[in-house]
Write a protein that binds this DNA or RNA. Structure first.
Lengths: 268, 268
DNA sequence: AAAGTCGGTTCATTATTTAAACCGACGGTA
DNA sequence: TACCGTCGGTTTAAATAATGAACCGACTTT
């Protein structure tokens, strides 16, 4: 892990619940040496990725992230295009919806909306990266990505986020295949013990899944009929999203994964 | 300059006009070695700050900046609070308005709006950092910041962005003092030969200027009466912005700079 | 086919990062 | 008062990680 990654990793400790972090806490969270962390913080601050509160001396995310996000959205407006779709989907289903984009072997949530119609709500942390093997969004992306991605995920350890997380490679492959066949994915209790979710892939002009739209709800409200309704709205929303980005979903029944599996079977 | 800064600096080459940059162009722009730049790009990409176009192999800003911007806005919503004010100001004045936040010795634009009411328009690059000494926003911030900031700026070289940029320390001090006295700043042709702008400081709960709101217009439309009208609306908008952020403007006539100057005069 | 591109890789040299120990300031508590 | 732990921040020699000249193969232009 290079110096750059170590420094950038520090930024991932921020979340809605921990918007400010001091030197000591960064050291605790990262497990690295204090002087090292300090220098990284100083350098991040010098570049505007952090700013230090004058009073508490704690650090928070700086203006540079806003500026860069603005530049990206101005030239590649994925978030602003997809946000209305996500909000509409959340309102239509009455449950939390979100879009996450593929970033390496994880998913990066970029926008979410919760209509807050019920007493219990899904606890969604927009700062937290989502694993591919333990979330419906991840499975949806895996089902419509080049085979290399699934192979890479299978090659690594499938970390258990809950007792129900899929950790068996074969089970994951089957789950992904099923998602590829039906055009959307489902994952119960895989990431959070009390949450179930469904997701459908989003495509851009390259024809590959760049991320997924997902609806998540507490297990207590996960009734079969409701899930079917959500799935239908979800797929429609994801297709609309792909269309908006200039892409389109591959014909169901011939998803990338199936071709990949055939390729693999063909090679001795 | 540390490795982290070198890498993060690469991100600043993006702009509305150059949303994608290849390896070779990064090398040209940064003047650094190709292997070094490449490694930095790879590491930035691994952390989601860049993503590589599958076809062109060029890089663009990645989803991580969106995620981080979302986290910051969720916990420290400066941009989303100020955007409506900026848009209203732009509509009221009929000219381009923007907010920029202090980041070290530069300003980081975080949002702007142009009502496009005229044939000529100000060319505003949201990706470009603004210098303190050559922009009205910068002068506004200097006029309401602890004296250390002005000293730091005066200690460095005052780079000329145009033939009219203030490069003389005394002239800059006078300009800042005037801005401190009247509560807003004015800067003609200082950054762009064909643009004039006015700016007023924005304060948060700490009582120090965190940035400025500004209105910029082509010199050809810069008529005295219009500038006076704009200044009034500008100051009102900036005060509203400060109020929204929980801060308030210090009483005009006793700005921080005056105290600083007195302090300096007092010390032998 | 020669000479440009382009993105990406290699490896010895070197400079930067690293981590243990240290510092002074602060807040609570005997 | 003295003591204790914790805070943010600094210093050092030792070690790891960054560096850049040269190289590679693919692709275009001439």
């Amino acid at each position: 892990m290079g110096t750059i990654s170590k420094a950038l990793d520090l930024l991932n400790f921020f979340s809605r619940r921990t918007p400010e972090i001091g030197l000591g806490e960064f050291v605790r969270l990262s497990g690295r040496d204090k002087a090292t962390v300090y220098r990284h913080l100083v350098e991040l601050e010098a570049n505007g990725f952090l700013e230090q509160d004058a009073r508490s001396r704690a650090y928070r995310l700086g203006p540079a992230v806003l500026r860069l996000a603005g530049v990206r959205e101005a030239t590649h407006p994925v978030r602003s295009l997809l946000r209305p779709i996500v909000e509409q989907l959340a309102r239509d289903t009455g449950e939390l919806a979100h879009v996450s984009l593929l970033q390496g072997r994880m998913l990066s949530p970029i926008c979410h909306y919760d209509p807050h119609l019920h007493g219990t709500r899904v606890n969604f942390n927009e700062a937290e990266m989502l694993p591919l093997h333990a979330t419906s969004s991840g499975v949806a992306v895996l089902a419509f990505s080049p085979r290399g991605l699934l192979d890479k995920v299978l090659a690594g350890k499938l970390k258990a986020y809950s007792p129900h997380t899929i950790t068996d490679p074969q089970t994951l492959t089957d789950t992904v295949r099923k998602a590829a066949a039906q055009g959307f994915s489902q994952m119960g209790r895989g990431f959070d013990e009390e949450v179930t979710s469904q997701a459908a892939p989003v495509f851009d002009t390259t024809g590959e899944a760049i991320g997924a739209i997902s609806v998540a709800l507490p297990m207590v409200r996960a009734e079969a009929g409701k899930l079917r309704t959500i799935a239908a709205e979800l797929v429609a929303a994801a297709n609309a999203a792909s269309h908006l980005l200039g892409g389109s979903r591959p014909a169901v029944g011939q998803p990338a994964l199936d071709r990949a599996l055939l390729d693999r079977a063909a090679k001795p």
